[in-house]
Simulated scan of single mutants.
Amino acid sequence: MAIILTVQGKGSITDGDVFIFPTDEELTGDDINAFITANDDLAKNKYLPAKKMYLGQHQIIDDAKKDHGPDNRLVGNLAHYIVDTYNGFYIGIPPKITLDNTQDNTVLQEWNDTNSVQDKLSEISKQAAIYGRALAFLYQDEDSKTCIAYSSPINSFIVYDDTVA
């Protein structure tokens, strides 16, 4: 794990864009703001260009028009094709998530259906293919029911501690 950037404060970012913070230090508001700024920079320089490429908004579309002759601009959106094809092969047949106990399995399947887990896994897979990472989290809603959600790395990030675990 090579650290290539020290974030203002005590945090750092590895060469894989992983945010690290020392276990023995207290995470302050300034440290969080520094990580937010670093993630905004990653979004601007890495994630948003990748999203534009996937959406077919290639640079050639924005280039200045030619002074003379035909201005034939074609975009063969290979990025979109590759991501969607990979996603179809990777998660086209949804994984079976089951438990051995029949009663527990029934509850799990109801939870999977209620939370549209298969659809969320598909979106998480697509985001991982576009951005190189995807974030999913479990949370408790207002009725104390466990839910699952995903978030684009443009809008969210995880800060890991600096231990091996």
Rank of each mutant, 00 (worst) to 15 (best):
M1T: 01
V7K: 03
S12V: 03
T14C: 10
T14Y: 06
D17Y: 02
V18A: 14
V18N: 13
I20W: 09
E25N: 10
E25H: 11
L27K: 09
T28L: 14
T28E: 12
N33M: 12
A34G: 03
A38K: 08
D41H: 12
Y47N: 14
A50M: 12
K51L: 06
Y54F: 09
L55P: 00
G56D: 08
G56L: 10
I60Y: 01
D63G: 07
D63M: 10
A64S: 09
K65M: 07
H68M: 11
H68G: 07
G69V: 01
D71V: 01
N72A: 11
R73G: 00
L74R: 03
G76Y: 14
H80V: 13
T85V: 08
Y86I: 15
G88A: 15
F89G: 12
F89N: 10
I97D: 01
N101F: 00
N101H: 02
T102G: 14
T102N: 15
Q103P: 11
D104C: 11
Q109P: 01
Q109M: 13
W111A: 15
N115P: 04
V117T: 08
V117M: 10
L121D: 04
A128D: 04
A129W: 09
G132E: 01
A134L: 05
A134S: 12
L135I: 08
A136L: 07
F137H: 06
L138V: 07
Y139R: 07
Q140V: 05
K145Q: 04
T146N: 10
I148V: 12
S151P: 00
I158R: 01
V159E: 08
V159F: 12
D162H: 00
A165F: 02
